[in-house]
Amino acid sequence: MSYLAASQLVGGYGGANILHECSLFADCGKISVIVGPNGAGKSTAMKAIFGLVRLSSGSVSLAGNDITGLSPQARVRCGMAIVPQVENVFPSLTVHENLEMGAFLRQDPIAETLQEVYELFPALAEMRTKEAGDLSGGQRQQLAFGRALMTRPTALLLDEPTAGVSPIVITSLFDMILEVAERNIAVLMCEQNASQALAIADTGFVLVQGTNRYTDSGPALLANPEVRRSFLGG
């Protein structure tokens, strides 16, 4: 069983179900990518794994422990972290304070983790006294990553990390995601930039109408002519 595993998720935001027996997983040090058309339930699946969506059935496990019933905060304590798609920083707090707030649950000294994050994102180190609201889109996204890493998570969920970011920055963001995964973190992300994201994916999921259509390694999905035709625009 994978480090982070969600199986047979069924649920939605109260109205009709959006997820229909959707199963996802991610392994330590590996990147899993969810792609699919608009409205396929990619973001909903991420939120469901983090406990932000009510599930009517299905289960989520982390390191072999069932965490289906836990609150999002409790999941943070267990070693999960999420980077929401929008509004993922505290705009009137400085970069440094944002990172401190990321580590709010930790009782031990955080200086070492701060150092690591600043090494990973040197741009943030230069801006540490600036307010997060004044950062550019790419910098803000880096800060959101950094904030999520402050709890030293073992599983990181990224909800469309490249949405609204310029193409040049997208490439560097993907590099950073690879670097994050190298620290033995299980990364699960959903992406609009399907081909670019699948290129770095160890595992790819193609989600359609809340259920798995294809599951394979990233390069294999990219090579699959049917996937190319239907979901990657030729």
Partner: peptide, 22 residues
Amino acid sequence: TRTGKAMRAFSDNEDLARLSGI
């Protein structure tokens, strides 16, 4: 103070503050 910053964070972005365990 940590608590004070948490208050400002909550005022900025309630959902994210909750996710951060505030």
